[in-house]
């Protein structure tokens, strides 16, 4: 695997870590959902980089990333819908206030 794919992988790893950090620490529920998107996009970057520069380049990676994009869109749509239902009942998007369930 040449040098060029390593830089893509590093970028993807950084994006994934930023996304994970955001998803675990941010207070605003919308930001949490956006951070998750960041993690999924890091995966797409990885797949595309491998499909072009990997040791066994093939078209599969690009097709996989198309599937990922579609499914991530569906997932976040459901996430937003649930957030709207929550907001109607509770009038907050702050995740630290979502603590009615017992520890």
């Amino acid at each position: 695997m040449g040098g060029i794919v390593t830089s893509y992988l590093t970028l993807a790893a950084i994006l994934f870590s930023i996304g994970l950090y955001g998803a675990l620490t941010k207070k605003n529920a919308i930001i949490v959902l956006i951070s998750i998107e960041l993690m999924l996009n890091a995966v797409n970057l990885n797949l595309i980089a491998f499909s072009k520069w990997g040791i066994n380049p093939s078209i599969h990676g690009q097709i996989f990333s198309l599937f990922t994009i579609v499914v991530a869109a569906a997932e976040v749509a459901v996430g937003i819908a649930i957030l709207i239902a929550l907001y109607r009942n509770k009038a907050t998007t702050n995740v630290t206030e979502m603590d009615t369930l017992k520890r």
């Binding site: 794919v5 998750i36 999924l40 890091a42 995966v43 491998f50 990997g54 040791i55 599969h60 996989f64």
Partner: peptide, 21 residues
């Protein structure tokens, strides 16, 4: 969704090493 992202990230490395899904 975080779990999905982790699974996918792992799968992307498997794909990268083999070039197949």
């Amino acid at each position: 969704s975080i779990a999905t992202a982790f699974t996918l990230y792992g799968m992307s490395f498997l794909y990268g090493m083999s070039g197949s899904t």
